[in-house]
Each structure stands twice: as structure tokens, then as C-alpha cells.
Amino acid sequence: MSRLSNWLPTNWQWFNRLGSPRWFYHRSERWLPWLSLAALLVLATGLVWGLAFAPEDAKQGNSFRIIYIHVPAAFLAQSGYFIMAIAGAIGLIWKMKISYMVMKAAAPIGAALTFIALFTGAVWGKPTWGAYWVWDARITSMLILLFLYAGVMALQYAYHSVDAASKASAILALVGTVNIPIINKSVDWWYTLHQPATIKLTSAPSMHMDMFMPLLVMIVGFYLFYAVALILHTRNEILRRERKTSWVRELATAKAGG
């Protein structure tokens, strides 16, 4: 850490301190209630607004309302991969312990969100397209994203050494990041090549404002929820990896005593 503090300006010290698992653990304890409350409020507002008050879709009726889960989940699934890769890169470059923990925490959350996006897409596809699964470009890209997450998680668990697991999966996440745009573009191109005539995508660029606003609220809510989930997972990982340090032991005895 000393090399880092040499060239960072003084007001960047928070970045430096963030590298300490102990500091992060104690500080995040203060953030969590506020973040959770905000996530709960925003998600509740968005859900009630989207499910009860937004107007019905002219063609799809009420079934379109799954968009308020599907789109935010797909959104976060993709940004989650970049968050994971950036955390891994910070770990590789500045050798921050905490960023490897964030990376490990981000993988299952991102995979779960990808699965939710695929699942809600399938449920939505049945009334809209008449099939649970079609080889549409976006669905295929999401499926490949799920595989990429699975690879990072599998590599994470394959190594006994924490250090090797962290660095290896950070490299894999970075390789995946370079590939995601290539994969998405290739799949788009492949889809235009084989476009089946029976499927008409109900695209949403001309979405009405009354429908779009709750979606925006839901996306913000999902971001807040993601932050809460990431911090909780990271705190767990901190306790697991630092279990032999004195501050975690003190914490444990304090909990047991109180």
C-alpha cells in the first residue's frame, strides 16, 4: 500500500483506506441501514407504480408488466460483470485485498441476476412469442453471460489457495470483459443472418413515459439492492478470510458475550 500512497493525492486517502478490510467492515456497518432503507423504498415505489398504476400495454395487456423485473435484472447482470472485472483489475494492479473479496462476492449475485433475467424472459416469452425459449440474439447473449459467470465462479472454487483463486479469476474476468462486446456483436450479427420470420420483437424504444418512469425507478432500485447485496456478501467474505486476525476474534467474542 505504501507505493500507492506515494503518488495518490492526499484527498484520495479514502481509496487507500478502503483497502483495509477492517475499515470497510466497520464503515459499511453504518452504510447498510441507510442503503437498505433506500433500496426498499425505491423498489416498493417502482413495483407499486409499475404493477398497479402504469397503463396496460395495447398489444400484450398486463403480461408486459414483467418488464419491471426483467429489464432491471438484465441491466444489472451486465453491469455486474464489469463491476466484478473492475474489482479484479484493481486487485491485480494495486494488490488490494478487499477488491478481490468484492470480486468474489459479485460473481454469484451477477449470476443470480442473469438467471432471473433469463427466467423472467422465458415466462414473458410464452404469452408474447408462444414459446418459452427462442434463439433470439439478446437471450443467447444473456445465456453466454451466464456461462461466463459460471466460469469465474468455478475457477474461484477450484483453487485451495485464496491468493491463486483471486488472481486467476481476476484474469479470467478481464479476459471475459474484453470478449463480452465481441460476443454480443457476433451474436447480433448471427441473429440477423438466421432471423426466423415468425418472431416479431416487441421493441420498446417508443415506450410511453407513463410506462417508462416506473422502469427507471426500478432500475435505480435494483442498483441500490445490488449495492446492499454486494456489501453483505463482501462483509461475509471479509469475516471468512480474516477469521484469524485479532479484530475478527474480538468481534466474535463480543458477539458471543453480548
Binding site: 453466454i144 456461462f147 461466463l148 459460471a150 466460469g151 468455478a154 475457477l155 479470467l172 479476459v175 471475459g176 470478449n179 465481441i182 460476443i183 457476433s186 451474436v187
Partner: peptide, 10 residues
């Protein structure tokens, strides 16, 4: 093969 297969798709 699990790690590399998604990267082979393009």
C-alpha cells in the same frame, strides 16, 4: 472447457 467455451462462440 467450461472457461473457454463461451469465448469460442464468436
Amino acid at each position: 472447457s467450461l472457461l473457454v467455451m463461451p469465448l469460442y462462440m464468436p
